[in-house]
């Protein structure tokens, strides 16, 4: 029987950026830039596309970047044995509000495809798939609150029905009105990659 393990995990809150439980960056209240841009610089990333993205996608990419490093030894390799599972509560409401402002007034009507495209919650999953070349199953679910049993169920069911899937990049990716609530992790069936078991206690400890 397959067992499931957490290979790495990360968290972004409005004040902290943590990887595998270690605080990597604390928000500097003096910083003139966006908190997400401060994290981008701290990670020494070079991904110009990042700056075109909405905040939901930016937070997903930033949370994934450090935990994907160990799996990017061959950066051009297509990953068909990986899945991506995203969940949140607000869907893309931050972007919906921004887009609505561009069409609200007849006298100031300027709908833009580059804003509209982000008014779907699963776009962050698409951006993650492109960045890490993941061509397996990708899905996005919405629930009122982060729910540990539901999260674990969605992840494990994805593995159970897709025998070719060995890894899943999964997370709760919520961003609304400057409130960033992001937890991402790599879950695998390979025990040798494990840092901790996938179970309710561990997920609760990481998330809460």
């Amino acid at each position: 029987m397959k067992t499931y393990h957490i290979a790495s995990y990360s968290k972004i809150t409005p004040t902290e950026f943590c990887v595998n439980g270690d605080k990597m960056l604390l928000r500097n209240p003096e910083s003139q830039d966006l908190w997400l841009h401060d994290i981008y610089r701290a990670l020494n990333m070079n991904y110009p596309k990042f700056f075109k993205m909405d905040k939901l996608c930016k937070s997903g990419i930033l949370a994934a970047e450090p935990i994907m490093q160990n799996f990017m030894v061959k950066p051009d390799e297509i990953k068909t044995n990986w899945a991506i599972i995203g969940m949140n509560s607000v869907s893309s409401l931050d972007d919906d509000t921004e887009y609505q402002a561009t069409i609200q007034n007849e006298n100031n009507y300027f709908p833009s495809p580059s804003v509209f495209v982000y008014t779907l919650p699963n776009i962050v999953i698409g951006e993650l798939a492109i960045k890490y070349k993941i061509q397996g199953e990708t899905s996005f679910y919405i629930e009122q609150l982060f729910n540990t049993p539901s999260f674990i169920t969605n992840v494990i069911k994805t593995f159970e029905v897709n025998p070719q899937i060995e890894y899943a990049l999964c997370g709760w990716i919520d961003y609304y009105e400057e409130n960033c609530d992001v937890m991402m992790m790599v879950i695998t069936t390979h025990p040798d990659k494990s840092i901790i078991e996938l179970n309710e206690t561990n997920i609760n400890q990481i998330y809460y």
Binding site: M1, S150, I152, T153, K157, E160, L198, N199, E200
Partner: peptide, 9 residues
Amino acid sequence: TIAEKSDGH
């Protein structure tokens, strides 16, 4: 399933 055993879902 494993999922049910591990988390009561």
